[in-house]
Amino acid sequence: MQRVNMIMAESPGLITICLLGYLLSAECTVFLDHENANKILNRPKRYNSGKLEEFVQGNLERECMEEKCSFEEAREVFENTERTTEFWKQYVDGDQCESNPCLNGGSCKDDINSYECWCPFGFEGKNCELDVTCNIKNGRCEQFCKNSADNKVVCSCTEGYRLAENQKSCEPAVPFPCGRVSVSQTSKLTRAETVFPDVDYVNSTEAETILDNITQSTQSFNDFTRVVGGEDAKPGQFPWQVVLNGKVDAFCGGSIVNEKWIVTAAHCVETGVKITVVAGEHNIEETEHTEQKRNVIRIIPHHNYNAAINKYNHDIALLELDEPLVLNSYVTPICIADKEYTNIFLKFGSGYVSGWGRVFHKGRSALVLQYLRVPLVDRATCLRSTKFTIYNNMFCAGFHEGGRDSCQGDSGGPHVTEVEGTSFLTGIISWGEECAMKGKYGIYTKVSRYVNWIKEKTKLT
């Protein structure tokens, strides 16, 4: 034993070699072989497995989906700052455009905790909710729209109204504003409101030439003092309507412009014939205590009207009353817009006519005020429907199939267009061939041609 100890002390290297040989010859039971080890760690190889990531292109799944990435790591994937920024906006807080917040056709661009709407022409605001041009839906104005110097929408209202708090709607500024039905039992019968379409306001006024200088022999019209197929109006439903009495009662109609003036057809009036105007009328054979009678003290036909040349060209006249009318729910003026808007309103496509005229061709006159909704007829169809001249200051309205029309005794009465609950004068009943005849239409004086003249002559002093 002493000898062994001496050998170990003198030859430590020998001992180490012996131990190493023993270990190498022993069977290893701690580690699995290569094949079995792979069965336990069965993990798919990654895209760049075996390579240094710093030297390969980034992978979106590896960089940002398996674990949260930084902007720089995302930049490695896209290799483009702009594309990385677009991805980053949604990656950080989701897609803010998912709810489609942009209105009126706006395009949404996502941002971090926010979004941006790219608005089409005519709109602005956070969600493109603000109209900035009158060309689109009248700028959301209830009545009139004008573009300011910086191309912003400025709404306005006709006389007797003021802008509401929203700067879009119009509200009454006087007790009985024009064009409004205020009798409670008839307010439910107000005709369907007309909503502004998209309009090209630059070209809204037709490029028409008034044929002022045409000389033409007097034409022989049949029954051209021209509501057939209409309905009984309720008291106060058309408070701007008046009836004219002269040699015979209810020979023509008219509309209240203001307390002192009536507008009617020029062919209705004769110099030297006494005319009485009755406002607030409903049943011409009954006294309903809503009527107001006034005498006409002055007749002003349009300066281009000449019955000797043509009885229905420039067929418009103004009547001055001896005493002002007292405005109330049964006696209310009709609204008159400017030339541009009167023309736009007419193009809405349908209007209402009213009167006490004959209820059928050569038949009896109506006792109760009649009204009828009539569609506008395109000019080409209008011209083809008659052998008589249709001037540019006239328009056609009615039904091709016949059966409904204005008729004798309705002449001078109103053709009105309702705009968001307020009625505007767009025409004056003038003439036609018979009444409600198939293929024939009622012919009306186009008020847009005469609004400046009306307003100039009827100013209240």
Results as ranks from 00 to 15, higher is better:
R62C: 04
P324M: 04
S448C: 03
R384M: 12
R294V: 02
S354D: 01
D338M: 04
E288H: 07
R46N: 09
V269A: 08
T422K: 07
F31G: 13
A265H: 01
D223Q: 12
G413Q: 08
T287E: 11
R226K: 10
T417H: 02
V30N: 13
R62Y: 06
I454Y: 01
H361E: 07
E285C: 05
G58Q: 04
R140E: 15
K457V: 12
E142D: 10
G122M: 05
N48R: 07
V374C: 03
P239Y: 01
V202N: 12
Y201T: 12
V77T: 13
E129P: 03
S204H: 11
E73S: 08
V181P: 11
C382A: 02
P239G: 02
C28V: 02
T225Y: 12
D249W: 00
K459R: 09
N213Q: 09
P414L: 12
G432N: 09
H289M: 14
K188G: 13
V331K: 00
I136C: 04
L163Q: 03
E35A: 13
I275R: 00
V331N: 02
K188V: 11
S406M: 11
D322L: 01
K188R: 08
A192L: 11
V30E: 10
P235W: 06
Q90Y: 08
H289R: 07
G280A: 03
N135R: 13
I284L: 11
E285I: 10
C268Y: 00
A265V: 03
V243F: 11
G427W: 00
K339T: 10
G398Q: 06
Y47G: 15
V416A: 10
N452F: 05
Q2N: 11
N5K: 15
Q408C: 13
L460I: 08
S423W: 14
G355F: 15
G105P: 02
I300A: 03
S169G: 08
E270D: 06
F345T: 01
G421E: 06
P177V: 04
T381C: 06
S114A: 10
C145G: 02
F121N: 09
A436P: 15
V273Q: 03
N452R: 09
M394D: 01
I336Q: 02
G403L: 09
E165D: 13
D223L: 11
N304C: 10
E434P: 13
Y450G: 01
R162G: 05
C407F: 09
M65F: 13
S99P: 07
T426A: 02
T458M: 04
F123I: 07
N113C: 04
A37P: 12
N113M: 09
Y201K: 11
T209Q: 11
D200I: 11
N104K: 04
S156L: 09
K68M: 10
E53H: 06
K362H: 13
E159N: 07
H314W: 08
H314S: 04
V278R: 05
T381Y: 07
T287Q: 10
L20R: 01
E54Q: 09
L372M: 11
G402D: 09
T85R: 07
E66P: 07
K440H: 12
Q167D: 10
S350E: 15
F121D: 08
G125A: 02
G442Q: 14
L460W: 11
E72R: 12
L244M: 06
S430K: 03
Q216Y: 10
I112E: 15
V296Q: 00
V195G: 12
P239K: 01
Y441L: 12
S406E: 15
N328R: 00
S156F: 11
V273M: 03
K188T: 06
E171N: 09
N310F: 04
L325M: 04
T426N: 00
M8D: 07
E320V: 00
V183I: 10
L376M: 13
N100T: 12
R358W: 07
L20A: 04
E82L: 04
F238K: 03
Y201F: 11
Y115N: 03
T85K: 06
G351Y: 00
A192W: 12
L369C: 04
K45G: 11
E73Q: 08
T158C: 05
R75E: 08
G421W: 03
G355D: 03
E67P: 05
S182Q: 06
G413R: 04
D198H: 12
K68D: 12
A279V: 03
R75Y: 06
N213F: 05
G236F: 04
G427I: 00
I299D: 02
Q370C: 05
N147F: 09
P12Y: 13
L20K: 01
V181K: 07
I284W: 09
I262Q: 01
G105V: 02
G179L: 00
H314C: 03
F360Q: 10
K311N: 06
A366T: 15
N80T: 12
N328I: 00
C108R: 02
E323K: 08
S350P: 12
Y444V: 07
V257P: 00
N100V: 07
N104F: 04
G363C: 04
K455G: 04
K45S: 05
P120S: 13
F121R: 13
S187K: 09
T445P: 00
C69I: 03
T422D: 00
C134E: 02
G351N: 08
I262N: 00
A366L: 11
E124D: 15
K168T: 06
Q370W: 03
I214W: 06
Q185Y: 12
Q57D: 15
I256P: 00
K260F: 07
N393W: 06
M8Q: 12
E171P: 03
I136F: 13
H400G: 09
V77S: 13
S430I: 14
P324I: 03
G246T: 05
G427F: 00
M6D: 07
S220T: 10
T422N: 03
E193N: 13
S448Q: 06
Q370S: 13
E208S: 12
R404W: 15
G402F: 14
G125S: 04
W261I: 02
E79L: 04
C18R: 02
E73L: 06
N5M: 13
S430P: 04
N127L: 15
K455D: 03
L460Q: 13
T422I: 14
G351R: 01
V368T: 15
K109I: 09
T389V: 08
E86N: 15
G253C: 11
C407S: 04
I334R: 00
C382N: 02
L14W: 11
L425S: 01
E320D: 01
A192M: 10
E159K: 06
R364I: 10
L376P: 05
V419W: 13
P324D: 05
P235C: 03
P175W: 04
P375H: 14
S182H: 11
T458I: 05
I15D: 02
E129V: 03
A265W: 01
K274G: 03
Q2S: 09
V451L: 04
A233I: 07
T218M: 07
T287S: 12
V153K: 15
A380M: 08
A250M: 07
A250F: 08
K51T: 13
P239V: 00
D150T: 13
I299R: 04
N42C: 04
R162M: 11
I214M: 07
D410F: 07
K440N: 15
R162S: 10
E433G: 11
E159S: 09
V296R: 00
H303E: 10
V181W: 07
L60Y: 07
K51V: 13
L321E: 01
N306C: 04
A233F: 06
V368A: 11
M437F: 13
A37Y: 05
L19K: 01
K457D: 02
V353F: 04
K455Y: 05
E433Y: 06
V30A: 09
E76F: 11
E53N: 07
E76I: 13
G254E: 01
I17M: 13
A397R: 02
I112V: 12
R379P: 13
E86Q: 15
S430H: 05
I15S: 04
V202Q: 09
C157P: 00
Q90P: 09
N213D: 07
K51L: 06
L14K: 03
H302S: 03
F395L: 00
I299Y: 07
A366R: 10
N59I: 05
S448V: 03
N42D: 15
C335E: 00
N127Q: 12
A317H: 00
T81R: 10
V199P: 12
P12E: 06
K89R: 11
T133E: 15
D405K: 09
L130G: 14
H289Q: 07
Y341G: 04
F348R: 10
N80G: 12
S49I: 09
D200L: 07
V419E: 02
